[in-house]
Nucleic acid binder design. Sequence first.
DNA 1: AAAAGACTCAACCGCGGAGAC
DNA 2: CGTCTCCGCGGTTGAGTCTTT
Length: 332
Amino acid sequence: MSTITAKREVGSSNEEETDLRRGPWTLEEDSLLIHYIARHGEGRWNMLAKSAGLKRTGKSCRLRWLNYLKPDIKRGNLTPQEQLLILELHSKWGNRWSKIAQHLPGRTDNEIKNYWRTRVQKQARQLNIESGSKRFIDAVKCFWMPRLLQKMEQSSASNSPTMIMKSFNNHAEASSMSTSSISNNIPNSPSPPQRELFMDVPNNQFSNMSSPNNNNNNVPPSSDSLQFSSQLFDMPQHVAAASNSPNVFENNNVYYYNNNPIVQENWNNVVDANGNNNYGGAMMEGLSMDPLSLMGTYYDIPQFDFQTCGSDWILDNNNNNMGDTLWNMDSM
DNA sequence: AAAAGACTCAACCGCGGAGAC
DNA sequence: CGTCTCCGCGGTTGAGTCTTT
């Protein structure tokens, strides 16, 4: 174990050279750290702290860099897609924040952890159920996730930067629609700019995407074999696996997934930074299908869950319907 | 307008694993 | 082996900010 031998209050008048600073970082410290890492790279944090002339622990430097200063860190609120992914991944892995963060490019484990504690656990408290309980997980799947999808749908209607969102239009009817009616369902956007898909994607992911064999190390290698879909579209990685799914077939230029027609022209528009379409399979699932069945597909949630949700089957400890009365989407 | 309460999130802490010696 | 150091992770704190009363 490392020990910090000389701690003193920040700004102490007796501060000596060997004292370590604590508390908020100053602009000057940030600048020192940034410039040092730009010259020498990150790692060896204790040595780095000393060499850079920072009166901070290596730990503190590492934290500041990874959680705040690193250039590819995404700012701003988590998107509904990201929230959805967090919920899904947390149900899979629990409080493995760093692992979850690996699947949300630009987001830090700290940020995700904070999100979980301040938003998700708050909901659990309001529902008077334990946040890790099966009851809560059910509530998340049945109420929160579908409503996030709704949000995604709404945001895609108002601004359409993300094609994947268009897939969730009119979910109640979509699964029974003919191909043409589904096509008509997609908002008319004649020849949408192809690159608008990548509005929020850091540059390093372009290179990661467009060149599968490159050695870009900015995005940590995933434990799963397919990386691109979740990195680009904020979807779980196993979505990407559908590109090879035996459930996808083509008939008369119409593609089907689990017997649901998919509008081909839309995933044909999905291109990477070089104009190449690499993502047909991943996008296929995201287009023009019943979002509830998609949810089941994407998030390993049995259809049954959704079909039973929406009724009064899930009540909190006070017999309130959690979905109708207590699930506060404004706090998401 | 002010006080109180709620919320956010950067930063800290302790712990455990990995590697060097 | 045991000890030490470094590193990364998850849990927690608390100052600052926002919202409500």
